[in-house]
Write a protein that binds this DNA or RNA. Structure first.
Lengths: 196, 196
DNA sequence: GTCTATATTACGATAGAC
DNA sequence: GTCTATCGTAATATAGAC
C-alpha cells in the first residue's frame, strides 16, 4: 500500500506468498526477516528493495491472503446451503487445524494485525470487507456472514492451542453444529429484502 | 507446571500478572523478557529464579488468565439467560476491544499458544476445560458453550485488527446478534438431560 | 531473591560490489 | 535486483555480587 502505481514484480509476489506460509506457521513477530525472505529463496538485501520494512510485508501478506480466501468462496453459488456447508466444514476440519501454513490467514495472524500500525489495519479492513461482501452474498445475510466468520476463525485458533485431538475435535464439532444451526435458522427466515 | 509441589511465591504471582497485561497488549513473542519483568518492577536476573525460561512464563500467563476468566463466569446463576447475555455483551463491547491488556487472554494470545511447546498446550487444554465446565453449566449445553466462546473470541480478535470504529461495531453487533439467536434457540430446546 | 553486568545470539536494516 | 558483509540494537539467558 506504499507504492500506489506500482507494478507488482514477480519477486515481490514470490516474497509475499512464501513469507505468508512461514508467518502463518511461526507467527509474524516470531519470524525474522532473514527467515521470511529466505523462505522465498532471497536474502534480506533484496527484501528492502521491495518493502520499506517488515511492517509493509505484514500488510501485503494480509491483503494477499484475504484475497485468496475471498477467491475460494467466490466460486460458490449464492444461497446454496449445501455448497456453503461443504466449504465451512473444510474450514472447520482437523486438516486445517494441523496445517496453518496452508490455511486461512485469520486464525494465526489476525491478533498480530491488532498490534500492527494503523496503515496495516486499514489494509486489513478493506480486504476483509471485500471478503465479507462475497461471503454475505453466499450466506444471504451480512450479519450472519460475520457471525459465521467469527465462529470459524475462533474455533480453528482455539483448536490449534489444544494438546489432544479429542479436545480439538470437541471445539470443531461444536463449531460445525453451530454453523448448521445458523444456516438452518436463516433458511426458515428468508431474505431480508423481499424480491417477491 | 514445571515445579509440581511448588508454593507460588508472591513475586512469581506479581510477575505473571504484570507480564500478562503487557503480553496481551503487545503480544508474547513481541515482548522481550526485560520488558515483561520490568512491568512487574523486577529485572531479568530475578525472573530466571522463578521460571526456567520464557516458555514457562507463557504457560503461567495462560493458566492464570483462564482461571480469572473462569472466576468471572462462576458468579452467574446457571441457565440465567439475562445474566449470561449481560456478561457476553460486556465481552463483545468496544471497551473490551480497546483494552486488551485488561481483557480476556484468548483473543490476543490463543494463536501464540498454537505455536508454543506441547507443555504449554497441555496447560492451555486443562485450564480451558475448567473454564468450559463452568460456562457449560451457565449455558446449559456444552456444545453451545464452545460455540459461544468461539464466536466471542473470534469477534474480539477480528475487531481489534480493524481500522475504524464503524467496522469494529459491525463485527461486534453481528456477534451479539448471533449470541442472542443461539441462546434463544437453546431456550426453545430445553435441557438435554431430562430431570422431570 | 534481586540486582548489575555481561555473554551470546538474533534481529531489523543498510552499504556497496556485482 | 540480488548478494555479501556488516552496523547497531535488542533478544534470551547466565554469572557473580549483595
Amino acid at each position: 500500500m506504499r507504492h500506489p502505481p506500482e507494478q507488482k514484480s514477480r519477486s515481490r509476489e514470490k516474497l509475499v506468498r512464501a513469507s505468508a506460509s512461514l508467518a502463518k506457521q511461526q507467527g509474524f513477530a516470531g519470524s525474522g526477516v532473514d527467515a521470511l525472505v529466505s523462505a522465498a529463496g532471497f536474502t534480506s538485501g533484496a527484501f528492502y528493495r521491495h518493502f520499506e520494512g517488515k511492517d509493509e510485508l505484514l500488510s501485503s501478506i494480509v491483503e494477499t491472503e484475504l484475497e485468496a480466501t475471498r477467491a475460494r468462496f467466490s466460486t460458490l453459488e449464492p444461497r446454496n446451503e449445501e455448497q456453503l456447508l461443504l466449504a465451512l466444514d473444510a474450514y472447520l476440519s482437523l486438516a486445517h487445524v494441523r496445517h496453518p501454513e496452508a490455511g486461512c490467514v485469520l486464525p494465526p495472524l489476525a491478533s498480530e494485525v491488532g498490534r500492527a500500525p494503523h496503515e496495516t489495519k486499514k489494509v486489513f479492513e478493506r480486504a476483509l470487507s471485500e471478503l465479507m461482501a462475497v461471503l454475505s452474498e453466499k450466506v444471504g445475510d451480512s450479519s450472519a456472514a460475520f457471525a459465521l466468520l467469527n465462529q470459524c476463525v475462533g474455533a480453528v485458533m482455539i483448536a490449534r492451542g489444544l494438546a489432544t485431538d479429542n479436545a480439538k475435535h470437541e471445539v470443531l464439532a461444536a463449531a460445525r453444529q453451530s454453523v448448521r444451526a445458523s444456516l438452518a435458522s436463516l433458511r426458515m427466515r428468508p431474505p431480508p429484502q423481499g424480491t417477491f
